[in-house]
Write a protein that binds this DNA or RNA. Sequence first.
DNA 1: CTCATTTAGATGCAGTTGCATTCACATCAG
DNA 2: CTGATGTGAATGCAACTGCATCTAAATGAG
Lengths: 149, 149
Amino acid sequence: MQTPDPFDIWLPLARAHKSILSSVEAALKQAGLPGLDWYDLLWELECAGDTGLRPFELQEKLLLPQYGVSRLADRLAKAGYLTRQECSGDGRGQILLLTAAGAETRAQMWAVYSDAMQQAVTPHFSPGEARRLAELLGKLLRPAPADKI
Amino acid sequence: MQTPDPFDIWLPLARAHKSILSSVEAALKQAGLPGLDWYDLLWELECAGDTGLRPFELQEKLLLPQYGVSRLADRLAKAGYLTRQECSGDGRGQILLLTAAGAETRAQMWAVYSDAMQQAVTPHFSPGEARRLAELLGKLLRPAPADKI
DNA sequence: CTCATTTAGATGCAGTTGCATTCACATCAG
DNA sequence: CTGATGTGAATGCAACTGCATCTAAATGAG
């Protein structure tokens, strides 16, 4: 029972990622909608509701660098999809809030996004395989079991 | 037995991809080496040997847009890692060939790349799980079974 | 309180990407 | 041969990214 080659996982994972991503991005562009980076931010803001989110919180949720969030938020604000509100209690900070236009756009994007994803992923698997794959991918995200490092 | 949600696969896949990718890129940068896009191209050229490769062939292998290959090749050429040779038989084309320096760099990169990948992936799985995951990811790449579309 | 350190966020600059266009050669119909 | 169409590759421009740095406010030691 020899150690398996991590590239047997990485190579198909990377290719699958690239190919799914580009098909979804193409569908969004085709529909005249923004890209997935915008979607992810809009979605997090929608989840956060009236409380909004601080940029540094988004940074963790979206796995983006600090300046990435700063500029992404700039663009979304310029598009009217979010507002920056002063942060009571921390003069350095700000709170990002979704606007109605932002929510609207997110909803439109969702229709396209979910449909494209459905087409890109579902046909390849039986329900059992899909469940198993989701489970195994999940293991990549959790911290590794201590005894295997 | 209802249809599974493709996002149960996509979300962990995307997160795993981003997190593995950034840890590997960080390791390469840390070692003062170029990024994975350079590696991929160098590797393909190495596989191609003396025959070399046409840019449009790399385009397919690397899933890059035409201008992406054109510019990536520019940079690699400027670094001395490949040479462009006139293509006998097609006056529009060219043949890209790996140089000794390119091969050397690819080898150095491989040491770092494979080690980082090992650390990022292996600890999360038993050998059986790894095999199964590789197999399932492979299914995402092959054309979908006709009866499931 | 005062000064040093840390944290939230913005930004200038250089390098990279996406898009559309351009150029050059190839191919093919007539 | 001649012009129309197709294909391989480069490039100008605008948008985006990474990096390093910068400002302002918070925190914390003395």
